[in-house]
Design a protein around this nucleic acid. Sequence first.
RNA 1: GGGGAGAUACCCUAGCGGUCAAAGGGAGCAGACUGUAAAUCUGCCGGCUAUGCCUUCGGAGGUUCAAAUCCUCCUCUCCCCA
Length: 438
Amino acid sequence: MYRKVINTLAILKERGFIKQCTGGEGEDLEKLMSHSKITYYIGFDPTADSLHVGSLVPIMAIAHLQQDGHIPIVIIGGGTTMIGDPSGKTEMRRIMTQDEIETNGGKILEQLKRYIEFGNSENSENAGIFLNNAEWLLDLNYIEFMRDIGRYFKVNEMIKNETYRQRLEREEGLSFIEFNYQLLQAYDFLILFDKYNCVLQMGGDDQWGNILAGIDLVRRTRFQNVCGLTFPLLTTARGQKMGKTESGTIWLDSNKTSPYEFYQYWINTDDRDVIKFLALFTFLPMDEIDELKKLTGEDIRKAKEILAYEVTKLAHSEMEAKKAQESSKVLFAKNSGGDLSAVPTTVMNRERFVNGISVIDLFFETSLITTKTAARRLIEQGGAYVNGKKITINMIVTEDYLENNILLLRSGKKNYHQIIVTEDTMKPCGEIKHHAVD
RNA sequence: GGGGAGAUACCCUAGCGGUCAAAGGGAGCAGACUGUAAAUCUGCCGGCUAUGCCUUCGGAGGUUCAAAUCCUCCUCUCCCCA
């Protein structure tokens, strides 16, 4: 391991993971962590069947701590999701079934395994623990809960909380079950403290109030000091939410966002974000990152390439990262003859080209555009290319255009798509899905 | 429970009988410039078998030659009072 710094917290701090921390500058936590290995937890939202780039901050934070020997607990909010966290939401969230949550949770666990070690047995001293809080929330008895837990929450304190105050002030309405969210999350912390001696909860900065509520609950019921830590809520330099692009969310699931697209997302990082992202989303040592910080102008692209490669390697695999990198180099750095297999691909039968296929139809059948009107517009505006040549609206593409049974389409400056032509008439047409391979 | 306001394209928002596929802004796309960055400027921005046709203005009906605009009912949202 590259680690030179002993103090884990210092690592998180210097890499930009810490927004707020209990105990001033985190002295309490520092003390706790220096004495012994601690158990800490983060909750993930199981509302989607995949995590996305926005979840990478907590994931990396968990990984850093685990690499230092601490024991992570990941919980998915199977119980709390059924209520919906009002934090920062203007509307109530859709209520999901346990089934959906279970399924999503399973997929999320698989993704987390790339970053965090979860041992089923005692194969590791600090293997991660994966839990669904439905386990203890679903069977709660209302009266008992009110008596044992509810009594510790003062409504006048709660409504001072930013989360609730906004909702109350705007008179948008805050339903009683949403108001209870904080109690449940605090209760999670208490349960984890009791069962696993979990002493630290981490989360996005919007979770600060909920985390403090949990800390209070443990103090009041168990007379023990536990800690909390929040991550900054990241936006890109342009003010976009992390992981959201024009074309949608950047998922960790390779079926939803291919490794190539994933790589492209990162290599297109804004200049101003590169160093910050290297620190947060890769395990590169800080002194190396400091070196990259010296790059200016066009050279910053080198740092972006490293960022894209490293992050893709973590999320998918070294092989996928290499393929994505090579394909990108062929397309953008004009390294000819390289491997283009990572580029989004559509397979079509040779038959289609015998009589020729109109460029509108050709583009329409790829994921480059979604309607024929868009295809027409793209071509008319001069943004469509086949094999690097600008095309016109009436063009018909025939076998003559094929180069080794491949057509390379381009939309705009940087959206590539290849069409592979097959002789086999039995093979169905369609997009090829990319799967991450270890 | 009483009173009021509203639901318009991806989002915000105008339109309030024909000239409305629907102003403006944002987002997005394309072009120029560049470094697969940012900023800036220009064009596009419902769909299609495309100088025309089709479907849109919460839902269902109705009035009219003509409805996003008027009427009726329904659904939902917000505000004020209790």
